[in-house]
Design a protein around this nucleic acid. Sequence first.
DNA 1: AAGCATGATGTCAGTTGCTGACATGACCAA
DNA 2: TTGGTCATGTCAGCAACTGACATCATGCTT
Lengths: 187, 187
Amino acid sequence: MSRWQPNAKGRLEQAALNLYQERGYEQTTVTEIAERAGLTERTFFRYFADKREVLFGGQENLLKTAVSAIETAPDTATPIEIIIAALEAVVPMFQERQEIARQRQSVIAANPGLQEREMLKLATLVSAMTNALRRRAVTDPEASLVANTGAIVFKTAYARWVGEPDAPDLSILIRASFDQLKRIISG
Amino acid sequence: MSRWQPNAKGRLEQAALNLYQERGYEQTTVTEIAERAGLTERTFFRYFADKREVLFGGQENLLKTAVSAIETAPDTATPIEIIIAALEAVVPMFQERQEIARQRQSVIAANPGLQEREMLKLATLVSAMTNALRRRAVTDPEASLVANTGAIVFKTAYARWVGEPDAPDLSILIRASFDQLKRIISG
DNA sequence: AAGCATGATGTCAGTTGCTGACATGACCAA
DNA sequence: TTGGTCATGTCAGCAACTGACATCATGCTT
């Protein structure tokens, strides 16, 4: 029999999400989270840089997937097409977890500090995609404009996907947002 | 002779900006800022909600100006034209203070926590502009897409304006960014 | 002129987020 | 068996932030 229960990080994430929902983010102390996970505060901070970070675990995977999609897009694709491909590459990571995504989102929506963190994560993603585009010889400021455009499209689609009870497929919403943006800007 | 030195808030802002530049944001304590301004830590927190907020004073003015520009745009303007007008309405608030803008930006660039706050401010602005557009009968998600597009355009222009030694006029850069975005998306 | 309300600031004590230093003890490899 | 490793615990401490109450110049009221 091993000394420690397995999956400490996952237990902390679960405990945090539950407590944030039950009492609200600010009313929850890190000590409480750790206790519910059967650990100590100090251990929480070994797994997560701060109290917010516990809600943003999947970020590195997301980033890798998006960057890798940009790197492997066909040479014939335009920058915008490359970005849309990156967004669609990332869709499956959400598709399965719609319920958890909704829980997370309602917690984040209730706290500005968490919204800050979410936007920093998004900005990190945009920055990584911008760099990936530059490596494909897309020049500045086009690379940055394209990456940011991708972020808007995704944000818009994601908001609908999380917000509507019987939302269409995420990749369909992405297409729809992009088409609408095209019409708005050219029109 | 009055009991207190005038302009406590301004003194705190100045002291904070200087100290963040001299020692870095994290190495500066709120007590140090207050001392340099001839006040106490407690008074700092009466003027600013937290240690970051001291760098984001002009925000409310900015927001009011942008929203008011949206409200007073001519009825013939398209949503995109309205947003561009809002961006240009805001230009004069930066134009005079390019040097301070550069100082602020270098401090913010050195600290992720400050970047978080800046993006929250930008998101607040986008949200206010979205609502202002809705009041002009622009429907969702178009209102949100347009406001976000404005934010990208401004961010791109602002980055160049702050980053290049002899940058062109900010409103020229806004036009340039918007034109380029149009080409990218339609192309 | 005396008294009184106001408002900006100070003082103090307390909670919580977060960190560094060191201790513990099951597991594993030599 | 021994000794190292690694996840966790323990403890002490700093800095951000808050609530409660004190101070006292200013200016209004009577």
